[in-house]
Design a protein around this nucleic acid. Structure first.
Length: 257
DNA sequence: GTTGAGCGTT
């Protein structure tokens, strides 16, 4: 395995974690790697993503092998404009498991055999409080300046170009939706073959569900679909097999650039 | 297409 493992964190006991804040939502580890690797030996880069959407949360973790290099990277890259955004580089304050950490270095002072209730909330690891935070100060800035737009477009195309090889966009919504509509339209109740351009069909089409609140959805009470219901086995993973945040491969870049 | 304080995965 050349790349850093998606099997979890590597040997982080002797590494120094750096927290990179204020990065763009489109910045990936591949973009940060060359930047941070210039100032030292980068062991691993991890960018937390959202479980639901899969988008970046706007910050990353860069682990250095040596503290001096990490310190230099902090001093050098802190305040640096990346992707049109001024990033904030600082030593990680907490460990991956909210363990004790010192200057970004994880200190396992206690044996892991003794799991202790952490002060933090291990049950809520995700942004469940994003609503509160959103209401707190939602109106601040659109953040969409000319820089990000330009960068986003360029990056977007790049991603599309490389992702187009293996799998297309998650068309399950459209495909499945049309499939349902197709099935619905397939009913003899509707004459398919001549449309009425003069008047708009009472069927909203895709605006709202044609059977929006039918007492019976046709699948539950039907009974026939119960056994032969196909839950759209079209694509299990829209991201394909590359759905890892840290997809950069040091020494062996798999980018087909 | 929207977000922006913060501390992380098998």
């Amino acid at each position: 395995m050349s790349h850093f493992g998606r099997s979890g964190p590597p040997d982080i006991t002797d590494t120094y974690s750096l927290l990179v804040l204020n990065i763009t939502f489109r910045t990936t580890a591949d973009d940060l790697f060359p930047l941070f690797d210039k100032y030292g030996k980068v062991v691993d880069i991890f960018i937390p993503r959202d479980r639901r959407t899969g988008d970046s949360r706007g910050f990353a973790f860069v682990r250095y092998k040596y503290a001096d290099e990490a310190q230099k990277a902090v001093d050098r890259l802190d305040g640096r404009v990346v992707d049109g955004r001024e990033i904030t580089v600082q030593f990680a304050k907490y460990g991956p498991n909210a363990e004790r950490i010192q200057k970004g270095r994880i200190i396992e002072s206690f044996p892991r055999s003794k799991h202790r209730s952490r002060s933090r909330s291990p049950r809520r690891r995700y942004r469940d409080d994003y609503r509160d935070r959103d209401y707190r100060r939602r109106s601040r800035s659109r953040s969409w300046d000319r820089y990000e737009r330009d960068r986003y477009r360029g990056r977007d195309r790049d991603y599309r170009r490389r992702s187009r090889s293996r799998s297309a966009s998650p068309d399950y919504s459209r495909g499945r939706g049309r499939g349902r509509y197709d099935d619905y339209r397939r009913s003899p109740s509707r004459s398919v073959g001549s449309a009425s351009p003069a008047q708009h069909s009472p069927s909203p089409g895709r605006s709202l569900s044609p059977r929006k609140n039918s007492p019976l959805r046709g699948e539950s009470s039907d009974g026939r679909s119960r056994g032969e219901r196909s839950p759209s086995p079209r694509s299990a993973s829209p991201r394909g097999g590359h759905g890892d945040t840290r997809s950069y491969s040091p020494g062996n870049s798999d980018v087909d650039d």
